[in-house]
Amino acid sequence: MMAHSDKHRFLTSPVLATGQTFEGESGLRVNETATRARAGLLNILSMLTIFILLWQPELDPVIYVGPYVIVDMTMAALFGLTPLSPSGLVGTAITMKLPPLWKPAKPKQFAWTLGAIMGVTCLVFRLLDFPAGWLLAVLGICFVLTWLEAVLGFCVGCWLHAKLFGCEICRLN
């Protein structure tokens, strides 16, 4: 691991930067510990949405969850975990006493953009009244992807970013 600050930071400097900078290093970094906590929160949200769709579909959770996920993922992709991503704020807050693990921001931004696209897909499927199976399939993928990130620390979007665009720094960390 490269020599990064062991200090956990709630806000980036400048505040709306996508990640944190470190002296002597190029590129922005995001705290992987907070990112994984955020993924865990989104995993719980996707699981609850699936359960509600299966057992109480009349509650229509996607009409509420879809916009939340779209905003949350878009804000994270554009401005980092804090201060505009609601799940990023909570994920960061609950990991403040844990040591940070700084990772490159670009792959995470790419992954969060894909997450926003999946949110849009869910909402469009719902608004166009697609069969429930289609919606459940996308939600199932969201569940698996957030579980992989939260539990195993494997970000499929980051992996895909490295395959498509290359990321030498990703292999070093």
Rank of each mutant, 00 (worst) to 15 (best):
Y68C: 08
P57F: 02
L145I: 06
L41M: 15
C158R: 01
G166R: 04
A76S: 13
L16S: 08
T21M: 10
V120A: 05
L89G: 12
D6E: 11
W134F: 13
V120L: 10
A162E: 13
A137K: 03
R126C: 01
V62F: 05
T113L: 08
W134G: 09
V90H: 03
L164I: 10
P86D: 03
L145S: 03
E25W: 09
L59W: 11
F10G: 07
T74E: 03
A34R: 02
T33I: 05
H8E: 02
P61R: 04
P104I: 04
V138T: 08
E32P: 01
L145Q: 02
I50Y: 10
F10M: 13
L89A: 12
T82M: 06
F154W: 14
P104Q: 09
I44W: 06
P57Y: 04
S87M: 12
L53P: 00
E23N: 07
L164T: 05
R171W: 06
L98H: 12
C170T: 05
L54C: 01
M1N: 13
A116F: 01
N173G: 00
P131N: 08
V69C: 07
E168Q: 11
M75G: 03
Q20K: 10
L172M: 13
T35W: 10
A105D: 04
G115M: 00
S46T: 11
L42V: 14
E23S: 10
P99K: 15
P86Y: 03
F22I: 04
Q109I: 00
L128V: 10
K7L: 09
P67A: 04
K97Q: 12
A3Q: 15
Q109V: 00
G133W: 12
R9P: 00
